[in-house]
Design a protein around this nucleic acid. Structure first.
Lengths: 207, 207, 207, 207
DNA sequence: AATGAATGAGCGTTCATTCAT
DNA sequence: GATGAATGAACGCTCATTCAT
């Protein structure tokens, strides 16, 4: 009985996941508003009504998608940070890891960079909390580097974090909307990290 | 009489403009998809049907809005570039000018950074052309600086342009979605330019 | 001045007529409901608003069109009847004259046979009166022939009139909707009259 | 249980039919263009949206209505023809059967005689095919009679068919638009057949 | 739990009509 | 009279959501 229950639980989780994965594809192709709930249902191989057994509304699919993906991303980023030594290394890891993640997931890149902004309401009401958490992680690495003297301290960690996020987002967006050429992201990540880190070095006041 | 005639002429051209200005406000507040055509009409002080004397569809309002604003932006950016001397100065001017522009136009900032992405179709089909033009302007300034030896040449101008755009966009978005505190943008612009330009300096290979 | 006034008067009557003639063309091509008032205005070479100086509504254009055309038709039919001698001759003249009239006016044929029926309301409220007048003319010729013994009297003149109208209408409609081949109507008229008149002869009770 | 299942099955197929039957009533009362989709829905006892589960558009309701009714009519007419012996008998049967059919279905008569013509487009693009099929049936009976010598052969079967259709249509229309008095159609049918068949007899060239 | 037929509120758009010039 | 820009009521249709099975 418990085995069956377990199986059922797994199955259930599977269906929710299938819906989320289908949603990523559909949202990426057509955008959130132009995507129809029945398209997501078809893509997930479930009936229209089934969607509502797992999500309260179409909005909640997008919300859950971000909640799910960003939570996972935050976890991975924290792990990656822990692996780095010193702020510059950590910044470089943050940049390369994030763009590396998207390399094989163009749909997800599009959903995050494009679709996240499709609902102002969503962005304002929901995403802020998670988004702030994300920005905080970035800013904390910068601030740490400033405390240790590894990074210049005449700039606001929060502003740098916002620019860092924006840079990653801009690169990902142009890549996702473009041809999504393989290898493109990795090269861009490396150069972006180079420029950013050089820019963040303690100024040597070269005459 | 000529004054009246003048006023009349202005008034006529004005109606299209009034609709566009109303659309900026409404789109910024509720997002493109959640905005109703009659809300735009009301905000513009015209009848619903009047909208369709100037625009083919609700979509075309957004399209025209970008066409109009981005065309104007490109013109202003080219003028600002011409005022600068040398690539670093031009880059700094591009950054500060753009964020300065938005300082008093939070609604427009939100429409450009958020709403532009609300229609994948729009972004893919329409915006690419104009957006590419915008990125080209940025990239050309970088490339020029590389030719003159003012900027490091081991990074792709196009990648830098994308990160530059992204950085501006990220800063503008977080500002627009946040409290839009006065002065915030100017300070962010200055620091962003500092970091960016330091990052773009020719590496001195300091031991 | 009086000349100018006269010219103006003529011009004015002309404008009403131009609108009606334009309406015939437009209605024939697209049907009453699918025709737009501004299409009629364009076709007539006048401004949209001008239509309303001559007609109270779009409906009234159709109404006036029929009033005008059917009144004229009734007058012509009465003249044609007067020219005939005896009921059979008059019936034949009615048939051939009407289909002959349409020969060069396919648009009008389409409007009368098709568009007249596009508005049940119109047909019921307005057309009945005129239509009855038309049917009465037909029926009176039949009844006259019955009184003089030229035509069989075991059929109701009104039923014959309805069938006669229907036959003409059916022939005109299929012609108008078909290729409208020249000469087609004249031949059909002749054969229709032959059959009808043979059918209306006093039965000889041929053993 | 099987009764309930049977009822359920019927009900399902019924919904499309209920909509069509409601449409006949509504179209007859107000005409196609003046009929509102929600009126049809109400009359059918379904929600507005349900209409669109069975028909692509309001137009398609009319189209389907004719397709459905005319197909059924053609089948019945063919059966009726088969029952007749010799062309004259068949012609009489065609006339009396058709007008007899409408006797109890005034709404349908009005839709067929009036509404069919409400959309030129419909009439031109769609109806032609079915209408031609209908005319062909009529013409073939006439032609057959001509071959066997039962009917005069100096008139075109197609012209006779068109007049026959028109006569029936004219009688039906005036009846439907009039008071629709009971028994009226049957009497008219009989007299119309008398006149028509006498007119189609081989001329005896009575001196 | 899963289904998918049914629902009905809601919106973009059209177009006959008006009226200031 | 003539114009045509402006109006705004009206409607076909969509689609997220529900619920009987």
């Amino acid at each position: 009985m418990s085995a069956a229950a377990g199986a059922r639980t797994v199955r259930t989780g599977d269906k929710r996941d299938r819906i989320l994965r289908a949603a990523v594809k559909v949202f990426a192709r057509k955008g959130f508003y132009a995507s129809r709930v029945n398209e997501i249902a078809s893509a997930a191989g479930v009936a229209d009504g089934t969607i509502y057994l797992y999500f309260k509304s179409k909005d909640e699919i997008l919300t859950s998608l971000f909640e799910d993906r960003i939570t996972r991303l935050l976890g991975l980023l924290r792990e990656e940070c822990a692996r780095g030594e010193g702020a510059p290394d950590r910044v470089r890891r943050l940049v390369e890891f994030q763009l590396g993640l998207l390399e094989g997931e163009r749909d997800l890149a599009e959903v995050i960079t494009v679709n996240l902004r499709q609902s102002s309401r969503l962005l304002k009401q929901y995403a802020n909390r998670r988004f702030t958490e994300y920005l905080d992680l970035m800013a904390s690495v910068i601030a740490e580097g400033q405390r240790t003297g590894e990074l210049r301290d005449d700039v606001s960690p929060r502003i740098v974090a916002r620019a860092l996020f924006g840079g990653l987002d801009g690169i990902a967006m142009t890549w996702a909307l473009g041809n999504g050429e393989s290898g493109g992201l990795r090269r861009a990540a490396s150069q972006f990290a180079d420029v950013l880190l050089d820019g963040l070095r303690v100024p040597v006041k070269t005459g």
